[in-house]
Write a protein that binds this DNA or RNA. Structure first.
Lengths: 198, 198
DNA sequence: TTACTTTTAGTACCTAGTCATAAAATCGGA
DNA sequence: TCCGATTTTATGACTAGGTACTAAAAGTAA
């Protein structure tokens, strides 16, 4: 059955959002209307043509790619970094990061921000978290901006680097953690458990 | 001065690699040759036309984005649960969960699996992680299946529930953590057959 | 000059559209 | 059921950024 205009336009938006590479012709076939109708729909919904959509997606990703490679894998945006000393990142808590019912941020996102910052601050080819002690000091809600501050504080006797990370919303401490990081270029060679290299 | 054919084609490749959004016309102007010459060059160098280049960039980034979205939600599948006692979940480590270079799983995914299992095992309206001590025992690689086992081990004097989570690949322990969970209804033991907190 | 490479020009055709106009089909209400 | 409005479809002219092909002009080396 052919849907109503409203319903078709709703589905059209959804379809294009899911697959921006779809042509008007394909959409026309999908909704059993003429190509002209699809074009009228796009006009009414202010959806740009295929090529413009593709260009937009490409431009975005190209801009992203220009960002430094190691920083790309960090959760949150690094705004300051002094290798092997300190680093700061910000992470905006959005709806997708919180429990639906309570709107409180899920712990692993705060952990991910802190952990990836601890990885980033270490100026080495390979950095992995060996151990961590973390404390969720207060709940973070959607809409809040979390500023994580990492500081390299020392080394364990086994040669691991210790990084302290404190995360704040405004002046308020919301998360704190101590990370023991394993790194590849340790001056002291220790018979650590099975490390994996490729 | 107009460069030799060889030199022009070398620069052409470089230019397009740096900016795939450049048209033949712009290139012709840049190298002071005709558009036809540029097209001949692309033909000889097997460089696709502008639209194909853009499409390629867009397709790549789109695939990445589709993979990145569920990354935020996937924290393992619960395969067994005994409320307020124990729970088991599995998590398949895929390419999107690992560091590209080393193919070692990023710590926050293992944490997320364990943490969300600790949340799930607590049979209450609200469960939040207050504190956690975790240990990454051995590195997990892409393709491996991580089985997390949570066990409620007791309570702190402040009334928090303590959950121990151990994660395995096969028989081998890869992650272990102790989670101190805050919960809303601490004394109440209602038979509320609630939904899973996502 | 001849022979060859390189460059330029021009044509027809393509896709996936744009914009504008007009006709046909469908729908809701009295 | 007819009327007017909305919605859909058709048509034509035009666009960018090409492909594919043919042909001629310009440059170069012997």
């Amino acid at each position: 059955m052919r849907k109503s205009k409203r319903e078709r336009q709703r589905l059209l938006q959804e379809t294009i959002r899911e697959n921006p590479f779809v042509t008007d012709e394909e959409l026309a076939e999908k909704f059993s209307v003429s190509v002209q109708t699809i074009r009228l729909d796009r006009l009414e919904l202010s959806i740009p043509e295929l090529r413009e959509r593709i260009k937009h997606v490409a431009r975005q990703s190209f801009a992203d790619k220009v960002r430094a490679l190691p920083l790309e894998e960090v959760i949150g945006d690094i705004i300051d970094i002094e290798p092997d000393a300190s680093a700061i990142s910000i992470f905006d808590v959005k709806e997708e990061h919180v429990f639906r019912r309570t709107r409180i941020a899920r712990g692993h996102h705060l952990f991910a921000q802190a952990n990836s910052l601890a990885v980033a601050v270490i100026h080495d080819e390979l950095a992995l978290t060996a151990k961590a002690t973390i404390r969720f000091v207060r709940q973070v809600k959607a809409g809040e901006r979390v500023v994580a501050k990492a500081k390299v504080t020392g080394k364990t006797k086994s040669g691991r680097t210790v990084v302290d990370v404190n995360s704040y919303v405004g002046q308020e401490l919301v998360f704190s953690g101590t990370f023991e990081m394993y790194r590849s270029n340790m001056e002291k060679k220790d018979g650590d458990s099975n490390e994996y290299r490729d």
